[in-house]
Amino acid sequence: MSMTLFLILCLNGVQYGMLLFLIAAGLTLVFGVMGFINLAHGVQYMVGAYLAFFFVQLTGSFFLAVVLSLGAALIIGLLLEYFIFRHLYTRTHLDQVLATFGIIIFLNELAKVLFGPATLSLSPPELLSGSIQLTETLRYPVYRLVTIFIGLAVAVGLFFAVSYTRVGMLIRAGATTPEMVSALGVNIQQLFMIVFGVGAMLAGFAGVIAAPIFAVEPGMGDNILIVAFVVIIIGGVGSIGGAFVAALLVGLIDTLGRSLATMVLSAVFNPSFASQIGPALASMLIYILMAAILVFRPKGLLPAKGANA
């Protein structure tokens, strides 16, 4: 295989990793700070994608649609928090699973009813369509490149927010010693709402920027939710840095694995066997990685300090 193809695959992997990071960051914070297991996080990603589709249809402008979608994703997230999640923080994880499972069922069906069961596609904005010459032989779509930079920017922003702001300090404290935060007399309700809103917006944002790359369809959030869980297990629950490293790792391994597994296998085995086993192995890679992490570093690569597994 050529170097160019390999580089493209790596870029795709990084781009997928960035998307995973946007989703996993919210998930890990919500779980780390509130101990809340939100299965509906993935469906918020789907909501983001449908919002983008809807607002592009409505306004005709991709950039306007991004802004409107973000606002709408935030509002939907806050409404869910106010009416449902808020009442579940002190409940058992089983209750949380059931309620958020109900939300998934509802929103997936709603998407089907409003937009139809078929796959929708959204083209990237005019300005970002086309591709760019990176090296002599390598051209890469501008839109994908931009999403990588946006992901990086969000990561940097989040990192600074969590490291240096007051809310960030409380989030870190909450992820390690929740008793301390309430002892400080902080309005926990408000902190939770902020964390939840940010998480919902990040997931929605991931959905928005994913819309022109992947298919927009009901249930699109379900699989990515599970991959996001894998990411936070690998990275260490409650840890933004861990989520970032793990998201990149998972993005790269998954993308490269899917393209290369069959090829690598056929170097050793006969081609028909390789082409049978290859795809299966490729889809298992990230779970094998997760299992390995569980064996050797049960708390993840970069666990939030003091987090107890």
Binding site: I84, L88, L98, A99, G102, I105, F106
Partner: peptide
């Protein structure tokens, strides 16, 4: 499912 989903939430 539009009814079933919210039913689960309400039940919890």
């Amino acid at each position: 499912r539009l009814i079933y989903g919210p039913l689960l939430v309400l039940m919890v």
